[in-house]
Design a binder for these strands. Sequence first.
DNA 1: CCAGATCGTGACACCGGCGTAATTCCGCCG
DNA 2: CGGCGGAATTACGCCGGTGTCACGATCTGG
Lengths: 174, 174
Amino acid sequence: MSEPSSPVESFSGKKAADIVGISYRQLDYWARTDLIRPSVADAHGSGTRRRYSYRDLLELKLVKTLLDNGIKLESIRKAFAYLREQLNEDLSAAKLVMVGNSAVLVRENDELIDVVNRYQGQGVLNLLALDGVQSEVDAAIVELFPSEGDEGEAEAGDADDAGGPARPAAEGGS
Amino acid sequence: MSEPSSPVESFSGKKAADIVGISYRQLDYWARTDLIRPSVADAHGSGTRRRYSYRDLLELKLVKTLLDNGIKLESIRKAFAYLREQLNEDLSAAKLVMVGNSAVLVRENDELIDVVNRYQGQGVLNLLALDGVQSEVDAAIVELFPSEGDEGEAEAGDADDAGGPARPAAEGGS
DNA sequence: CCAGATCGTGACACCGGCGTAATTCCGCCG
DNA sequence: CGGCGGAATTACGCCGGTGTCACGATCTGG
């Protein structure tokens, strides 16, 4: 997964939940209530399949991390209104700053010091380094679905569940 | 209220809730579930009276501020396990830092820069300047109960509801 | 094509947190 | 002392969030 941003990679709902470390129920609820919907393919009835992109996984993991650190889901929803456009598939140098209900991604350390110095006490300032979020997603992909992790993106087409419905499953990875 | 730390000052439950800006229900729930109990006098049956100290008000206001900024009550409970001993009646130079479920009060700016620089990305770092918390409590006391605010602590004995049951009510302040 | 696996869906339950309202009881004051 | 005001208490409800389970529908692989 040295190049995790393969545009053809996608994950089933169950796999996404496993990788991110949340229950399927949570994933379903978040999708239904428009927090994080699957960007590759959405459900359109019982038995159909959601498909989540790698970027979706990062977003899901971010939500989980914020929840685990005591932030209300309601507030995370509000923050994502600001965040959605700023998130991409490389979070290794990014830090998330949330003040009140707004959120901004900071990518330069100077910028971060500036934000903290400009903090004048108006409410709580939340700070989260996103490299940990990304590395945990990457590690979970490698650990839970080694055929996706071991082979790298060059073999992504062979991976079960990773290439979308047009790709034949090369082995029973799931 | 230039000297807000008068040890004889106390507030009824309703007044405390008004000053802090929460519902009586919230105040009651937080007292019953041991988040912030009234330190001067606790309830011991229907019709009896809770009495909150000025310091209790600061704690209540801190809880409200954290809630308003999206922190879960459950996490605030955990943070207070660490915080209780560190809070006093002068928060003007203090900043609260919460990482994971632990919390620490920082009073020197150097110390704060140190904490932020030492932040290595393990979870969310929450930062809150407490001078705003305190000044809002002080302002609310002055605004809502001027006899307590206008006269200062020298006249606290004359204030309705501020001196405890042994003090006669000088005027219908409530 | 078909059987079985897997997925999404619906339903119900539980819990925490808090709103609303009625009731009971205490404390204060005349 | 008694009446009354106000406080705490109790009860029920709602909502968001999530756990658990059964069921129907779609998808996949042989």
